[in-house]
Amino acid sequence: MDLRIFTEPQQGATYDTLLTVAKATEDLGFDAFFRSDHYLKMGDVDGLPGPTDAWITLAGLARETSRIRLGTLMTAATFRLPGVLAIQVAQVDQMSGGRVELGLGAGWFEEEHTAYGIPFPKEKFGRLEEQLEIVTGLWGTDTGKTFDFQGEYYELKDSPALPKPAQEKIPVLIGGHGASRTPRLAARFADEFNMPFGSIEDSERQFGRVRAAAEEAGRPADAITYSNVLVVCVGKDDQEVARRAAAIGREVDELKRNGLAGTPAEVVDKIGRYAEIGSRRIYLQTLDLHDLDHLELISTQVQSQLS
């Protein structure tokens, strides 16, 4: 089971804070550092000093880390034109020496679009599908050849399809709870399918849908990696769990139901139950980015018990 650190910088984080967390992620042996792609805070937080851009952040981290994978959960298709996104991600992959992964979603948070003057189209899923076709098509075009695309929302003609990523193929992540369109899209494009904040039962059901869609598309179901993202709150004892839960404005009982919360033994046990239904990777949503002792505890007392 891979453990990855997942951050929500729109809730309030500077680049320097994210760099500190990313370096701790690397030093403590975690597999990857991922971040959300949002421009507006959510909930009762001040969000200061304001948002940071996902791909600018990852470009910086690409030069200041050496081992960990870097990526997004999820880049919003509404934020960037697909050709521009393909260039950005390929460049960051080059800057990292081939350590980038792209999580791409339709975009959903209308208020952040309104706040920063970003169009928020009614039909987002069709745009996402075309973006996936274009981004993967540009990367997959042989050097010296051109790429053309004619869709309902985007048109490319005689694109040189450059630059190329450092990796032969950048892993593409698709996720969500949708019962039909999302599994079909994952079957076509996903190297990894991510279930966000889902129970063990809901995750098993959705993984089954993706597996069935992959097989129907003529693709081995096991060609896709299945993963979860869950909020994490670990303490060496009940008192420390309660303190960390209070620091992020959550209740312990709710976190134990809906996330990974409790003592290391409790969290290891719950991770094992996700592994039993086919999850091979957990993104630990880390909400207190200044509590590096939390990451160290997870590394030494949780990650060390997972093979």
Rank of each mutant, 00 (worst) to 15 (best):
V232G: 10
R243A: 15
T263K: 05
L284W: 05
P264S: 10
D237Y: 08
R257D: 05
P220N: 12
I282S: 13
D238R: 11
G175H: 04
I224R: 02
A214V: 04
E266L: 10
V241S: 03
Q239D: 15
P264H: 09
A214P: 02
H177T: 12
R211E: 13
I282G: 09
I224M: 02
Q206M: 14
A214M: 08
I271N: 01
K236W: 02
P264A: 13
G218N: 10
R209D: 02
D202N: 14
R257I: 11
I200H: 03
F197K: 15
I224D: 05
A186T: 00
I271S: 03
Y226H: 09
Q167G: 01
A214N: 05
K164A: 04
Q167A: 01
A261M: 06
V231K: 07
R244W: 04
K169Y: 00
A187V: 00
P165R: 05
N228M: 14
Q285D: 08
P165I: 04
Q206E: 03
Y283W: 15
A187S: 10
A166M: 08
A179C: 06
F189Y: 13
A217K: 05
L284V: 06
V210A: 01
A261D: 02
T263E: 08
V241N: 04
P196E: 02
G278F: 00
V241H: 07
E276V: 06
A247K: 10
R244P: 01
Y283I: 03
R205A: 14
F189E: 06
F197P: 00
V231S: 10
R181Q: 14
R273G: 12
S203E: 01
P160M: 09
A242V: 10
N194V: 12
I170Q: 01
R281D: 09
E276L: 05
K256Y: 08
R181F: 10
F193K: 01
A166T: 13
A275D: 13
R273W: 09
F197R: 15
G218L: 03
A190F: 03
Q239F: 07
G278Y: 00
Q206D: 05
P163G: 11
A212P: 08
M195I: 11
A187F: 01
I248Q: 09
R273H: 14
N194P: 06
Q285S: 12
K169H: 14
G259K: 00
E216T: 11
P220G: 07
R257P: 00
E201T: 15
A217M: 11
A245S: 09
A166F: 08
I224H: 04
A161I: 08
I200A: 01
E254K: 14
I277L: 04
K270P: 07
S180Y: 13
R280F: 01
L162D: 00
R281K: 14
R250Y: 07
